[in-house]
Design a protein around this nucleic acid. Sequence first.
RNA 1: GGGCCCGUGGUGUAGUGGCCCAACAUGCCAGCCUGUCACGCUGGAGAUCGCCGGUUCGAAUCCGGUCGGGCCCGCCA
Length: 524
Amino acid sequence: MVQVSGVVRERPEGTANAELETGESEVVGDRFEVLNPSKVPPFYINEEQPGLDESLRLKYRYLDLRRPPMQQRMLLRSRLASSIRRALEDEGFVEIETPTLIRSTPEGARDFVVPSRLRPGEFYALPQSPQQLKQLLMVAGYDRYFQLAHAYRDEDLRGDRQPEHTQVDIEMSFVTEEDVISTVERVVTRVAGDVLPDRPILQSPFPRLTYAEAMDRYGSDKPDIRFDMELVDLTDAVREVDFRVFSEPIAAGGTVFAIVAPGCGDYSRKQLDELIDLAKRHGAKGLVHLAVQSDGSLHGPAAKFLEGHEAALLAATGASAGDLVLVVADADRVAASEALGHIRLAMGDRLGLRQRGVLGYVWVHRFPMFAWVPEEQRWDATHNPFSAPVPDDIPLMDSDPGAVRAQQYDLALNGWESGGGSVRIHQRAMLEKAFALMGHSVEGMRDEFGALLDALEYGAPPHGGIAIGLDRWAALYAEVDNIREVMAFPKTQSGTDLMMDAPSPISDKQLDELSLRIVDEGER
RNA sequence: GGGCCCGUGGUGUAGUGGCCCAACAUGCCAGCCUGUCACGCUGGAGAUCGCCGGUUCGAAUCCGGUCGGGCCCGCCA
């Protein structure tokens, strides 16, 4: 690292270089000082280096962060966070920090825990979300709260999942679902205009789909609405077809879904096999593929079973010559649509339909409130256990809990889950009822959620909110597929920090102070 | 918990049983050039092919294990 002082001047005649940003000028140095010598860095800082091993970048993150693409992403993230704060403050929100040493609750994801020295044998947990705290702030009367909060989950990692992430946490009092959605939509729209003025929002106001609609049309609860290729329910069209792949699921009350991949009728065996693999990986028993021939006949292993039904199938799907019809049948409607939803995304990628320049925001709401967990013989919350039921569905909590819809809404962007929230239950009796359905005893509830239950008895206002993942937000805005690219110091997929070499053993002294003992793998 | 892929000088790649005590590019070191700017020229150093074991007359290459990284399924209220 050197410091040069001198005079900046135009380059002499004939020495300018139009191809360089600084090609017109030069510095005539009069003082030159080495501030600090440097070793040769392990990779190029000033040039793009395709194929550079990410683990090397992570080990030397402080050098990686010097590279212009990383700098640009860090600055983008900073502009994003700053714009979010401004937009929320202008809407009357106040930022309140909540602690990151809190109580462990076994609900949901695994907690990261921190041993207490002063209370041997007891542990804090790092929050998976400030959920209960922000609801308590509503009871406290801070009716528009937000925080750029760190949240922690001790679950397996993915390209879009880190053990520690930042969420834009928002909660509001005296609101309906409509109020939260429209407020968030204003904020998100303004931030997009601020940070990415050149990238249009596909549709505004953002489309709203019910969960059932999203699953039926896109096979996903976080649909990518930048392209159509929507799912078609073929159940009725093929009801009479004598083909066990269809007839057995239909007999079991299931569904046959199809999509049409335009112009893909000439797909090779290999390309089709990849799609079949993908469908199976996402839970389908298989994938039926039918290429539409120029005479309207169908080509594919299942074509012979569909003889005589071609016209009905083409009419139902809208497929025409040269197209590829892809079909998944399953006794479980959601399983069928989810599998085909993944095929739809893969086809969207292959056909270049998922254009990065566009922001396809969409709301998905009316999620089922409970899902049956057969292994544990109880209902579980599909999203947030504090979500309120849709008022019309409250009677169903007794008769048919699986049919109860929650006032729960997710914000999806370009096929990613961007955020999720709900109107919360603000009455103690209702919260106890919901928890009881989820198999919580009264004592258990008091133990884990005592403060919240008690607080609801002191005039808790109706309230609701949302949490939006800031890392995914930044990643989508930066047009990268991996949130590590927008985090200064991310962890590897196995949860390690290659630069700091964490996690690491601690000293016997530390263990003693914490009254902890390490048990060998063999002793367990 | 499981599936798949990757690991070769500092870096990125080539090499899929002998022609390899490993090739190319770039970087690094030394010298030359001195209006160059992805400079150029000449020379040089640098790799026990992630690690351990096995198969084989012979292993970077095949097999088993292990470590590290990535993608995915499960998981992620």
